Amino acid sequence: MQTLYRRLLRLMPRIGVQVTDIAPGTALVSRSATPLSVTGAGKGTWIVRRNKGGATPEPGATSAVRLGETGAVLLMDAAAGQDERKLQLAAAEYLCTQHVAAMLALYEANCVFDVGANNGQYARRLRRLGYTGRIVSFEPTSETFAKLEKAAERDPDWHVYRCGLGREETTAEIHTGWKTMNSLLGPSDYGKDRYSRFHTSDTEEIRIRRLDEVMDEALDGLADPRPYLKMDTQGYDLEVFAGAGKRVEEFVGMQSEVAVLRLYEGSPGMGEAVATYEAAGFGITGMYPVTREATTGRVIEFDCVLMRADAAPTP
């Protein structure tokens, strides 16, 4: 007896779609010059994907992996599995962003402080994931801030500040020309060995403000502020955190890039950073590797997500 799956595939040519069986549970589907492949992912589930370059997939080249009892399915290309490190980091980035979005919703956060915003990648990702609250982004360097400002110009609830944040109000020289890794700190010996970009740099004088000094302005107009703090400042997160003073207690949660292997001279290690955050009342809800050594597999940095448990809304 024909399965429903096969009957559906046989109907596709009537709407201009060509179907060719290439393996049990797998078929090649094409329309015009763009092939699509259909992969059986289990009972009642099939996945259709566009094939790169119009290539016909080899039988068994694609597999579908069920993710536990969640109902989610991961479509795995054979080529993807060849670079374990890249696959793991991509998965970690995806899981981290999904987790942050879930925590923002659970804790009813309505203002995200995006410290070390770069071009606005983090804020744009939050919007794609459905976060509609206020975003306040901080980026100190002139060239990068111009890109950030442009990214935010059509979003009325995305505010941008051209400054860095730290322990005290001052000015400082920041290393530039390191792309997403510009820092107020110089590179460590380990950092120089890992990244050739650290061998040369320009500098730019920037303004440093305290977080507690900008909070009233950033939260203005919110009747019941429930802020979340994200920091990605290339070794400077604890200085930003210190600048919040007592007002750090107002944050329902936070996110910090913590270092296992230090890329910057004088930056805190993961143990010191996490201990500081936990002493301020935050508890870890997720740890996601950001970078790993290709030769050893060691994690260099984690994205650490922490929430203040007593700030969770009562069910």
Rank of each mutant, 00 (worst) to 15 (best):
L222S: 07
L106W: 03
P315I: 13
H99I: 15
G245V: 08
C111R: 00
D224V: 14
N118W: 09
S188A: 07
R124L: 13
D21R: 09
M287T: 11
E293L: 09
V274K: 03
A123V: 05
A275Q: 09
F138T: 00
C96R: 10
A152K: 03
N118H: 11
T285E: 15
Y277S: 01
G269T: 08
V115I: 06
Q234F: 07
R127I: 05
A90S: 10
A61Q: 09
N51L: 14
S196V: 09
P57Q: 14
F241H: 05
Q98M: 11
T170Y: 06
R162E: 05
V65K: 13
Q88G: 04
F113S: 01
D83Y: 10
A273I: 00
E204I: 03
H159S: 10
M307W: 00
L222Y: 03
T34V: 12
T180K: 07
E58I: 14
G133P: 02
L263A: 00
E173S: 14
E239I: 00
R298P: 02
T291M: 08
P24Y: 07
H159G: 04
T203I: 07
Y122Q: 07
E250N: 13
R49T: 14
I300K: 01
I135G: 01
R298T: 01
R209N: 05
R127T: 10
G243D: 00
L95M: 12
G243V: 01
P313M: 14
T56S: 10
R247K: 13
W178H: 10
E69K: 12
R49E: 12
I15Q: 11
Q2V: 13
G25N: 07
M215I: 04
V160N: 02
R308K: 13
L74V: 10
R292W: 03
E257Q: 08
T170R: 08
A242L: 14
Q98G: 14
A101Y: 03
V214E: 02
Q88T: 15
G44W: 07
A244D: 01
E272T: 03
M103Q: 04
S37C: 15
R6T: 14
P315C: 08
E301G: 01
V290T: 14
M181R: 12
E153S: 11
K150T: 14
R292F: 05
K179M: 05
E213H: 06
E168I: 08
D303W: 03
Q234G: 02
T176C: 08
A309Q: 10
S32Y: 12
L129C: 06
L9F: 07
A78P: 05
D155L: 11
L89C: 13
D212A: 05
K192S: 07
E250T: 06
H175L: 08
L229V: 08
G16P: 11
T97G: 12
A151D: 05
D189N: 06
T132E: 12
L222I: 15
K230S: 06
I284M: 15
C96L: 13
